[in-house]
């Protein structure tokens, strides 16, 4: 288990999110509270439509809540402008998606460089940083390959390397093994856990994967836009 400092990385209070679907309003989140400490691994499970991805999007500054408050690393992002949110996403958050979401026209190396390139105050030399991270995920021999030339597992490892590019406080992973077979999924999961151990990054994972849930510090279950279960992990 990674040492937790007790410093709060994510503080969400009474988060609500409504979507208009034609004439109806769907309440995707109905007052979610969540606090995640630095270094913690939190797994969020739930059925399809329970609000997991919506929550993840709001936590990552990809979307804004209809009501409630959200702070990342002690900074309130609830009413930030789109540009301010972009800065937060770039510097404080890393994303890993189910469908990898690599830029198809760029090589693995170029994909990993992106967050550093987009930074208004780069902490690293983009190329060097990307090489280090790809080596870290075991892809030093695939740096010049494009996504279409990589297997699903390799693509997801590139995505993990990209998520780490600016050494974020928080990594948000949406079903990171959901699009991979179990063996490869296992390997990717291991990569994620190894990196978390080495970097001490906070990790929130939305997953159906019981393996991940079993390894998490906390295991949350969502239903109809609310947490219905909060279980401490191993």
């Amino acid at each position: 288990m990674v040492q937790q400092t007790g410093q709060i990385v994510v503080q969400a209070t009474e988060l609500r999110k409504d979507f208009a679907m034609g004439d109806d309003t769907v309440q995707a989140l109905r007052g979610v509270d969540l606090t995640v400490a630095q270094g913690e691994l939190v797994a969020i499970a739930g059925h399809s439509g329970s609000g997991k991805s919506t929550l993840l999007g709001i936590l990552g500054g990809l979307d804004t809540p209809t009501a409630g408050q959200i702070a990342i690393g002690g900074v309130d992002i609830t009413s930030m402008s789109e540009n301010q949110l972009a800065e937060i996403r770039n510097s404080k958050i890393g994303f890993v998606f189910q469908f990898f979401n690599l830029i198809p026209t760029l090589t693995a190396l170029e994909n990993v460089e992106l967050p550093v390139l987009f930074s208004s105050a780069p902490k690293y030399a983009p190329r060097q940083r990307a090489k280090e991270l790809l080596a870290l995920v075991g892809l030093e021999d695939r740096m010049q390959h494009r996504p279409a030339q990589l297997s699903g597992g390799q693509q997801q490892r590139v995505a993990i390397a990209r998520a780490l590019a600016n050494a974020p406080d928080l990594i948000l992973a949406d079903e990171p093994t959901g699009n991979l077979d179990s063996t490869i999924g296992q390997a990717v999961l291991q990569t994620l856990l190894d990196l978390r151990r080495e970097t001490g990054t906070t990790l929130i994972v939305v997953t159906h994967d019981s393996d991940i849930a079993g390894l998490a510090d906390r295991h949350l279950t969502m239903k109809d836009g609310l947490f219905v279960q909060d279980t401490a992990g191993c």
């Binding site: 789109e82 972009a86 770039n90 510097s91 994303f95 979401n101 690599l102 992106l114 967050p115 990209r162």
Partner: peptide, 15 residues
């Protein structure tokens, strides 16, 4: 989707 990814990685609207 690609634009979404780039924005998630921190690229701003005008960029």
């Amino acid at each position: 989707n690609e634009v979404g990814v780039l924005k998630a990685l921190g690229l701003k609207g005008r960029q």
